[in-house]
Simulated assay, not measured.
Amino acid sequence: MCIAVFLWQAHPFYPFFLLHNRDEYLSRPTEPVAWWDNGEILGGRDGLAGGTWLACSRSGKIAFVTNVREVGNVPGPKSRGELPVRFLESKKNPTEFAEEVVMEAHRYNGFNLILVDLSSKSMIYVTNRPKDDEALVSEVLPGIHVLSTASLDTPWPKAVRLRTNFEQFLEKHGSGELPAEEMADKLMTDMTKADKTTLPGIHSVEFEYSLSSIFVEANTELHEKRICSISKDEWEVAFYEKYLAEESWIEQRENFVMSGRVPAEQFLALALLVCTVFASRFCHQLS
């Protein structure tokens, strides 16, 4: 299912670096990366509920959401995909918006939400399915983090594998520029499955085993892949998307200059986000 690894305020060249996988049914309409109606939000859009799984704004705000693997659903839930959109459209900082979300968290199925404001160097994690006695809202500390369909940094086998492989790339390249597209190709398309004895045991062993790789390969014709990236080079943002449609790979790019909220002295040299998206019968529902 969905999984992300990201580096936050812990690299001299990258204030923020993200690799993100999203799963979805091919039958669920999905619009490719584009500027939304008001020209302030850039991201993909869920064609059914209208939300998004990952997007950014011209002012340097970023948000992404994953579901939580669980048994049962909330009756008549609100769409989880609306949460990133609401944050990007609001004037609130991550903490203020998180406090708003907590008040209505019971109306959603399980979610993990990351809220980022590059101008204030703020990142907040929100979940309505906290593990043990953890809080619903917490500040994300500098360092490497992995988020899958469990709480932030839960050491599920695929999360541990992704973090280890990500750290190896960091060690190899030191404090310099990272080969973003190579990392996406090698890390986020990893189809190695976990040992069945290490699975979390929320669903059946066979079902969880089929989802236990970083890149979920479904034995079904309903299969699509997308890779998209956002890079910030001081004031410039470049968004790259690559997806498989009807046996052909399609690529597109979007570039824009960030608004003046981000101070020049912060020098956002190349904060890179890479998102891989593929559709299968194993679905990350946004509703």
Rank of each mutant, 00 (worst) to 15 (best):
F278N: 14
E134G: 01
G47H: 09
R69T: 09
D132P: 03
L270S: 13
V262Q: 05
F282Q: 07
L147P: 00
D153M: 03
G201T: 07
E177D: 12
H223K: 08
K121G: 00
F169R: 12
S287G: 04
F207Y: 15
D153L: 02
N219C: 07
F97S: 11
G72D: 05
F278S: 04
T220S: 15
N38S: 15
A218W: 05
G51C: 04
H203V: 04
A135Q: 10
T30Y: 01
L268Q: 03
G47E: 08
E254F: 13
G260L: 02
D117K: 08
L152K: 07
R129S: 10
V33T: 13
E182R: 14
V68R: 05
L222I: 08
F169V: 14
G176H: 14
I41F: 01
D190T: 00
W36Q: 02
R58E: 03
P75S: 15
I41K: 03
D185R: 14
E99S: 09
K186H: 11
N21V: 08
N112K: 10
T30M: 07
Q9W: 05
L115F: 06
I227H: 08
R28M: 12
F278C: 10
E96L: 06
L42D: 01
L19W: 02
A49T: 04
P179I: 08
P15I: 07
A55N: 06
P94L: 11
P29C: 07
D153Q: 05
L211M: 15
Y25Q: 09
G43W: 00
D46L: 06
E100F: 14
S248N: 10
V140W: 04
S79K: 14
R163F: 05
S231Q: 03
G143M: 07
D46R: 07
L199K: 09
E182V: 03
H203R: 12
S204P: 03
S122C: 15
S248V: 15
E104N: 11
K121R: 15
I62Q: 03
L178W: 11
V257G: 00
D132F: 11
T220W: 00
L270C: 12
R45I: 03
E265N: 12
G81H: 12
A98I: 15
H20I: 07
F97E: 13
V85N: 00
K121L: 15
S229N: 11
S79M: 07
T30R: 02
N128M: 08
E134C: 10
W8V: 04
E171V: 09
L211H: 05
V216P: 04
V102D: 13
S119I: 06
